[in-house]
Amino acid sequence: MEQLAPLIAATLSAGTPLLLAGIGLVVNERSGVVNLGAEGMMLIAAVAGFAVGFATGSPAAGLIAGAVAGMLFSLIFSALAIGLVTNQYATGLALTLFGAGLSAFAGLSYVGKSVPFKTTFEIPLLADIPFFGAAFFKLHPMVYFALLLTAVVAWMLARTRLGLVIRAVGESPESAHAIGYSVRAIRVGAVAFGGACCGLAGVYLSLIYTPLWVEGMVAGRGWIALALTTFATWRPWRVALGAYLFGSVTMIQFALQAEGIEIASQLLSMMPYIATIVVLALISRNPAFIRLNMPASLGKPFHP
């Protein structure tokens, strides 16, 4: 029990970048567009946010800059994949390659720099509750923001007209077009939102989670976030579930190692991946479960 509260807190922090990016990608994909450029957008945002945070000394400015950078970078994808109907998968991958290179080049002068931001937080009163305080109420505000964002996106997709339109565009762009919606404008918007969220995730890594910039520091989290959207069957709350599941298994395998368990660490390191596969297989057994949620036009180009 004594170790459970810090484990929960660590899980919530570790899952946050995956959740932020995953939520954005859900909206992105609900509109029928797959953007495999998540990793590249996160890297661009990580370096841009770090640079602004470093220059201004303001974490908030850094976070906003990261989101904006991710959004702007996603416009390259939109211009090609939506504007010029290039293949979405290939365009996304090219974007990742491009982003990795560009961020490394832009970030050279920030290697070895640090940002002296506040690192500890607590919510007054709540933080003093035994167990719950340490587990839930001493986290960075971005952790709560990610959950808030999840709630807002879940509500937006399910209950609002905007959500309905986004889903319609992802299901049947032809019909949406026929009744007068601009499919491309809506898709560009959804991709931009995805880019902004991936941007937040990237800058969360470089300014908050491990406040530093080094080349390639996103280290595959963009890909995990992409995988989580399918894991979640494109439902926001299930993205949160997936992100925290992944985070918790990661933390648990480290905790087992710290306890000196005699299983080869390479095998333990496989646990988060295998756990994700197993849970996915279990929840996917009911075919309706997946099919009902998968945007019918996912990945298919649309040209009016």
Binding site: A90, A94, L95, L97, F98, G99, G101, A104
Partner: peptide, 14 residues
């Protein structure tokens, strides 16, 4: 720098 290679490769692919 190797980073430029990535930029160049990305450009070619795009």
């Amino acid at each position: 720098p190797a980073a430029i290679t990535g930029v160049f490769q990305g450009m070619l692919l795009l």
